[in-house]
């Protein structure tokens, strides 16, 4: 057995290109706690230099295959890409089957690919993803591609961690009203219509164009950047280079317009809010377990106390300065 390495050693090795050290650091960041804080302290400076790209879309839209092709294109262009492939944890058991590597087999020795489970708990990813991005950034990986299933809070947390968000849609998965409902339109900086060799691809494109027009009418859009729509076929590589260029163009736009600073600020704010929220939750749960609150909970359950009155018992236990 070799001696366990200190965090400093791991970081030095990770920066030197040791994939095993990087893999280990990502596990520590995922686990959270003081060790994760220590790693964040040692990796946060300069870790923002790289591009962070979020890729999201419905299950089966071909995201993983497209990410593999995209990562190969970045590697060909001389970059050193990494992928954080996010898959859901089972809400019942906490377990997960992370299968994104199956579609990325062609690039799994050139790019650094890490599977990430959402691990259910509120805000968990919102904390661990920025930490993982810092570790990969300090190890010199760019772009860092975060791939996630486009449903619900997870995708919002993840896109908040990205500079550029690519939304992948496919023909025949519902019209633009569906896309609008899913909330994907607001987060997209680049649209990809994947499996564009299938019937209906042009209809999908037109639907998206119409929706973008509406964004223009309601004043939602970033005036300097209209999300391009790129038609792709990940299997034969059609359009992949165009996606790569669109990502770079959007990154350049963010830099030149000053919006990158704005996105970084938003990200910092979200990370702090999440941390503070978790701390607060912890205090609330502790207060709920106190003898005074147990009595109040019994009274509330039996109808002897109103929810408002129970809150007046709880509030000073959570925050002694509250009235």
């Amino acid at each position: 057995m070799t001696e366990p390495l200190t965090t400093e050693h791991l970081i030095a090795r990770s920066i030197g290109g040791d994939r095993r050290a990087t893999g280990r650091l990502l596990s520590l960041v995922e686990r959270g706690g003081p060790e994760a804080d220590r790693i964040a302290e040692l990796t946060h400076a300069g870790a923002d230099a790289g591009r962070v790209v979020g890729i999201t879309g419905a299950p089966g839209s071909g995201k993983s295959t497209m990410v593999a092709a995209l990562v190969a294109a970045f590697t060909d262009a001389g970059d050193r890409p990494a992928v954080l492939a996010v898959d859901p944890s089972s809400p019942l058991t906490g377990g997960a089957i992370l299968g994104d590597r199956v579609r990325m087999a062609a690039v799994d020795s050139t790019a650094f690919i890490r599977s990430v489970a959402t691990r259910g708990h509120a805000g968990g990813l919102a904390l661990s993803i920025p930490g993982a991005v810092r570790v990969l950034g300090s190890a010199g990986y760019t772009p860092i591609v975060i791939e996630t299933v486009g449903v619900g809070q997870v995708e919002v947390d993840v896109t908040a961690a990205a500079d550029t968000t690519v939304v992948v849609v496919t023909p025949g998965m519902g019209d633009a009203v569906q896309a609008n409902k899913a909330g994907l339109l607001e987060v997209a900086d680049v649209f990809v219509v994947n499996k564009a060799d299938r019937p209906g691809a042009d209809d999908t494109r037109r639907d998206l164009e119409l929706m973008l027009e509406l964004g223009h009418v309601t004043g939602q859009e970033d005036l300097g950047h209209r999300p391009p729509i790129v038609m792709t076929n990940s299997l034969d590589g059609t359009g992949i280079e165009a996606v790569r260029r669109a990502i770079i163009a959007h990154g350049d736009h963010l830099r030149s317009s000053g919006r990158l600073v704005e996105r970084h600020r938003r990200r910092a704010r979200l990370e702090l809010a999440t941390r503070a929220g978790l701390q607060f939750d912890h205090r609330v749960r502790q207060a709920l377990d106190s003898p005074a609150m147990r009595a109040a909970i019994d009274d509330l359950a039996a109808g002897r106390l109103s929810p408002g009155s129970a809150m007046r018992v709880l509030a000073p236990l959570v925050d002694p300065t509250a009235r």
Partner: peptide, 14 residues
């Protein structure tokens, strides 16, 4: 599936 249902994170390479 057995390992996932036991609460483990399984990375499947195929």
């Amino acid at each position: 599936r057995m390992l996932r249902d036991a609460g483990m994170e399984v990375i499947y390479l195929g």
